[in-house]
Amino acid sequence: MIISNRRITGLAVGVIAELVEEIGPLWQERHQARLTSRPRKQAVGAGSKHRLVFVDRLPATLVHLRHGVTHDVLACWFGVDRSTITRAVGEVRPLLAERGCTVSPDVRLRSLADVVDHLGASGSTGIIDGTEIWVRRLAAGRQDRDKFISGRNKQNAVKSMVVTDAEGRVLWCSPARPGVFGRPVPATRPAPDARTRKLRGHHSRPPVRAGQALGRRARGRDSRRCRLPGLGAQTGGRVVTPPHRKFKKNAPDWYEEMYERQRKAHSSRRIRVEYGIAHLKNWRALARHLGRREHMSDTVQAVAGLLSHQQTADLTSTRQR
């Protein structure tokens, strides 16, 4: 059985059973709504039946997200046509994306505001970083062809902001965006994405600790745009950014020692978000996306929701032992 091996779907059997119980009725409801929303010559329910039922559509979508398996391979695996797999993935993926990230069995985070409220209520620390996902290059002559180019790696990519807790467990991922503000930017810069998510608008709420990537400074013309100056002051100190370097040239020895100590202390706390991003990238759909770019936001948020659900289940089972 395909769902009996966690290496295939990335999820335990118990988590998949919970997904079937939660998403199955939603899929059936939307399917019936589509049938009744258009003029029909046959009654609803007449005609041929699905060859791929929902309990097969969900594992097919999970395998596609986990390993990046093509629709042709999945069609041969499940004994259906390729178009059936494409339709199944297109129906199940938005349902997975709408679930949000699971923090506990009764808490789901679906927006940045939810994350801020959760961190404030629990008194825990959140860590923010940006990541990029490579996508296919647009055809020559297409409008905004350069919009997806990463200024750091010179690759076509979309960016997403990832929020984890202090242990590296995923709390939320933003929808994917081509570059930042519609122009090429270095891949190590999560700052404008945070601004577009109105992070500063939540500064009156309980503390959120955010960190930028350190040690991956951009070169040349991009180096001036890599930092997030003033965000700590603009949020009343609730967002903690890397220490500002006051002496750029001929710094005293005592200052170099102090700055290096502060930088390492900040980096050692912020590194947990890199672990969370690494777990996300274990899902091949986020390592390099070869499908349509308009599906990237659903793919990112679906994978984040699945990963957080499995992490919560593992944490719960560990505590019960």
Rank of each mutant, 00 (worst) to 15 (best):
T9G: 05
G10S: 11
L11D: 00
L19P: 00
E21S: 15
E22L: 11
P25M: 14
L26M: 07
L26Q: 10
Q28R: 12
H31N: 14
Q32D: 12
A33P: 12
R38G: 09
Q42F: 13
V44N: 07
A46W: 04
R51Q: 13
V53G: 14
V55T: 13
V55M: 05
L58P: 00
P59C: 08
P59V: 07
L62N: 08
G68T: 03
T70L: 11
H71K: 09
H71G: 12
D72H: 13
D72Y: 15
W77L: 15
F78M: 09
G79M: 10
V80C: 13
T86P: 10
L95C: 03
G100Q: 01
D106R: 13
R110W: 01
L112I: 05
L112D: 07
D117T: 04
H118Q: 09
L119E: 04
G120C: 08
I127N: 02
I128F: 12
I128D: 06
T131M: 10
V135K: 03
R136A: 11
R137D: 09
A139Q: 14
Q143M: 12
N156Q: 12
A157Q: 05
A157E: 05
A166N: 11
R169I: 01
L171N: 00
P175V: 03
A176M: 01
R177N: 06
R177D: 01
G179K: 04
F181E: 01
V185P: 00
V185H: 03
D193Y: 07
R200C: 02
G201N: 05
G201Y: 10
H203S: 15
H203W: 14
P207M: 08
A210S: 10
Q212K: 13
Q212H: 10
A213R: 08
L214D: 04
D222F: 15
C226N: 13
G230T: 12
T235D: 06
G236Y: 05
G236V: 01
V240A: 09
V240I: 08
K248Y: 12
K249P: 04
A251D: 07
P252D: 06
Y255S: 07
M258C: 15
Y259L: 07
R261F: 14
K264T: 10
K264N: 06
R269I: 13
V273R: 03
Y275V: 01
A278M: 00
A278S: 02
R288K: 09
R288C: 05
H289N: 15
R292Y: 11
R293T: 06
A302D: 07
V303M: 09
V303W: 04
A304Y: 04
G305V: 00
L306E: 01
S308D: 05
Q310W: 00
A313P: 00
L315E: 03
